[in-house]
């Protein structure tokens, strides 16, 4: 791609532009991939709504699958539609490496939330379930 010096290059500092694609075929392929993944997600999600899965472990597994499919969609949008895949490697790394912080960010905070729940259930605070016959005793304050 180095010899592709053409009018799409916006400055003499830039030694190559994105090679302009000859056709729009790739765009339609990516649209197809995104649509198929979305339809699969919707079917799996509808399964949760309609209680197709036998138990909670299954539901959790399906939710995990949907999360992974969403990451796949994110990959295609960023890599193909935003053309990050055609940038040079060092530039890609300056964007992708900081995003790895999310691995800790998600794990730590969900763990924390789960811990609050366990501590509250174990040591008091709000009752675990609010099913009670005399609703007059209920407190509205909960997060």
């Amino acid at each position: 791609m180095s010899e592709h010096h053409d009018h799409t290059v916006s400055s003499p500092e830039i030694t190559f532009g994105h090679p302009p694609a000859e056709s729009t075929k790739r765009i339609w392929v990516v649209l197809g991939i995104l649509s198929i993944i979305t339809v699969i997600e919707l079917i799996l999600g509808l399964g949760i709504a309609r209680h197709w899965y036998p138990n909670d472990t299954w539901v959790l597994f399906v939710k995990g699958t949907v999360c992974i499919l969403s990451l796949a969609k994110a990959y295609y949008i960023v890599s193909e539609f935003m053309h990050l895949g055609s940038e040079i490697r060092n530039f890609i790394m300056t964007i992708v490496v900081p995003l790895l912080l999310f691995v800790w960010f998600i794990a730590a905070f969900l763990w924390d939330g789960n811990s609050w729940k366990n501590l509250r259930n174990k040591y008091g605070g709000e009752p675990a379930k609010q099913e009670q016959a005399a609703p007059a005793h209920q407190k509205g304050a909960k997060d």
């Binding site: 999310f102 998600i106 905070f109 924390d112 939330g113 789960n114 609050w116 729940k117 379930k129 997060d143």
Partner: peptide, 17 residues
């Protein structure tokens, strides 16, 4: 956006219902 969504997840994980 990530911080917002993770905060949502944290609160959701902290609830029994």
């Amino acid at each position: 956006f990530g911080a917002f969504l993770i905060s949502y997840g944290t609160i959701r994980f902290s609830q029994n219902f």
